[in-house]
């Protein structure tokens, strides 16, 4: 039997460059992003489906979709 390997993409945030504006939180359809103590955004990878809406929205363009 052949095993199909799924490539899953997840949003990945460069936390060092994040300004914690919250634009990504607003557009995430799954509520997978939260702002950690007003310092940076973090992704709940169990919830993220890799739709990429946050990456488009992020004003600093620091969210990338990365295969996990």
């Amino acid at each position: 039997m052949q095993e199909t390997k799924k490539i899953r993409k997840k949003a990945s945030i460069l936390q060092n460059e994040c300004v914690a504006c919250g634009c990504c939180v607003k557009v995430c359809p799954l509520g997978a992003i939260s702002i950690y103590k007003g310092v940076y955004a973090q992704v709940d990878e169990d919830k993220c489906v890799g739709c990429g809406k946050c990456a488009v929205e992020c004003p600093a363009s620091i969210i990338n979709l990365i295969s996990k």
Binding site: V19, A20, C21, C23, K37, G38, V39, E57, C58, P59, A60, S61
Partner: peptide, 19 residues
């Protein structure tokens, strides 16, 4: 991007520093 201002907004920078 639409909210580019948020990246260099002085209030945003200041509140982030406080946080």
């Amino acid at each position: 991007k639409p909210r580019s201002w948020c990246v260099y907004c002085p209030m945003g920078t200041m509140t982030q520093l406080i946080c």
